[in-house]
Design a binder for these strands. Sequence first.
DNA 1: TTTGCGATGTATCGCTGCGATACATCGCGC
DNA 2: GCGCGATGTATCGCAGCGATACATCGCAAA
Lengths: 206, 206
Amino acid sequence: MSDHRAGSFGPAEGRTGGKRSGVLELAVLGLLHETPMHGYELRKRLNALLGAFRAFSYGSLYPCLKELLLRGLIADESADDAPRALAGRRSKIVYRMTAEGKERLQDLLAEAGPAAWEDDGFGIRFAFFGQTRADVRLRILEGRRSRLEERMESVRAALARTRERLDSYTLELHKHGLESVEREVRWLNELIASERESGPGANTPT
Amino acid sequence: MSDHRAGSFGPAEGRTGGKRSGVLELAVLGLLHETPMHGYELRKRLNALLGAFRAFSYGSLYPCLKELLLRGLIADESADDAPRALAGRRSKIVYRMTAEGKERLQDLLAEAGPAAWEDDGFGIRFAFFGQTRADVRLRILEGRRSRLEERMESVRAALARTRERLDSYTLELHKHGLESVEREVRWLNELIASERESGPGANTPT
DNA sequence: TTTGCGATGTATCGCTGCGATACATCGCGC
DNA sequence: GCGCGATGTATCGCAGCGATACATCGCAAA
């Protein structure tokens, strides 16, 4: 019972206590793209950026930062240009993106597959839509919409199957849940329409 | 400025110690209260019950079941009334509630504190409102509402602080998120009203 | 002056729960 | 008699949370 990863895809690295981070990686890279920052501020900005949608904690942020450093996607700015003469003094770590980091960010922002229409993946990508190519935006929006439609369909089917066994509170819960999803679909429709309207040739640079 | 939980409720709720799952425990107990079942069906029913709101996986269900067995809150029915003569044959495990389990369920359903107005805790409890005392229902509904209002307030404040730095997509995300919360508050208001209406003396028995 | 406090800042530990996977049995059509 | 999908039990690796520890800095009340 040990070591059986079929490993069809997924980079076989990590280990050594290394923490992988899907969405956080994009979030960090996306923010650092603007200006260098240290962890504390990164978190504040991140949570301000995402608002009601999501909040990250230090328990995930710092391990992620550590890993990104290791992978060379970000670097400690205070280390490469500081005088270094000051012996041992260091309490702040200012992170900046490296060239590899920028490349990675571009790859992540170009991703328009399933990962980009899951709840987390979508939300975080949407927050960085300003840096995303117009055609990718559209594909993500549409993918998200069909993902939600799928979900609604399966919930509705399950509901139809069990409706008579459910009490009024459960029914109410389902109704509310379904309406939330419907509302998001409507929102997506508006966004898609306005994307299409602003010209299918519009490519947003950087 | 502080983005920490201000702790207006503080330690009064007697945490300070490793606390067990809570959510799944309640779900399992709540379902098993009706009829005995095995894990597979438990999961199906659970996800049908919760619908769009939430879905549990085996990775959490089975460990939870194991722990509940250990704690004596549920028992393996096929073990205590089966002939036992059949040597070694066993593939299904049918769980039933014990007296301790029923007691525990009552305690969980009576809980109307902070744990009951977090996203998960609230949803799961709402699904079992049919088994909850009317006054507890009301307190949970009101607690949930004020929790959401708190959240909206802090998001709005953060938004006001950073609005000018955000691009149109991020603004759209915030708007949508805020509206979702507002919608849930309105929903809660309706529920509260209808709870109050149906008489403050109404105590639902099991 | 000192003391205390809240914001800033870095970091880790224990835990919950997910997702993928493995494997076994059963019923049923062909 | 065979395949195949539903039923059924179970675990592993990992992401991310929440609490916590600790250190420094600026500032205002004592």
